[in-house]
């Protein structure tokens, strides 16, 4: 259990951060998810933990959304006039990335890598929630289609569709920013 949590905690934090866009809330979500997993499924075989943890994490994120929705009902009047310029701001207008340049050796390369990462993370944040869940579970958590479907509570066909659309949306968003992976 300890090894599993250690291996997954950073990715879980980033997943929660992509979804809720609030560092403190993301940390709370990861902590709640870890606690639930340890308390309820602490005696489960290691092979079952990734799927169980993802299911718990996604449910905890959804709970956060629900609470947020209720809270926003009361604050709509105050926040309706605030601008949302930050969300629409482009992180980078144009950027060319050399193919296969994963390990930058120069300060310029390192800067480019950071900028590409920022664009990718922003693109993932903007994906529809179900597409983001499917994409991250399937390709970042390396879960197979059946596991992803079980964690998301949907069919394997839906997982494939979500993943395909998410990848297409990301590729399109990156191209629009001038990034070629």
């Amino acid at each position: 259990m300890s090894d599993f949590l250690a291996s997954v905690e950073r990715r879980a934090y980033k997943q929660a951060l992509f979804a809720v866009r609030d560092g403190e809330a993301a940390l709370d979500i990861v902590q709640d998810s870890m606690l639930k997993l340890a308390e309820k499924y602490g005696n489960k075989p290691a092979g079952e933990l990734p799927m169980l943890f993802q299911r718990i994490l996604q449910n905890t994120i959804r709970d956060f959304y629900r609470r947020q929705k209720v809270r926003s009902m009361w604050t709509t009047l105050f926040s309706a006039f605030s601008s949302s310029d930050d969300e629409d701001a482009d992180l980078l207008e144009t950027l060319e990335v050399e193919q296969g340049s994963y390990s930058p050796t120069t300060p310029h390369g390192s800067l480019e890598q950071t900028q590409v990462l920022a664009i990718i993370e922003e693109g993932i944040k903007r994906l529809p929630p179900r597409q983001r869940e499917a994409f991250l579970m399937r390709y970042w958590e390396d879960m197979d289609i059946a596991e992803t479907a079980a964690a998301m509570g949907c069919s394997e066909g839906s997982v494939k569709t979500h993943c395909s659309r998410a990848t297409h949306s990301l590729a399109t968003a990156l191209k629009a920013k001038g990034v070629e992976l």
Binding site: L5, A6, L27, Q31, L35, A38, E39, G42
Partner: peptide, 9 residues
Amino acid sequence: SRMKALSHQ
């Protein structure tokens, strides 16, 4: 968070 979770395992 991990330590807390493990203490409740």
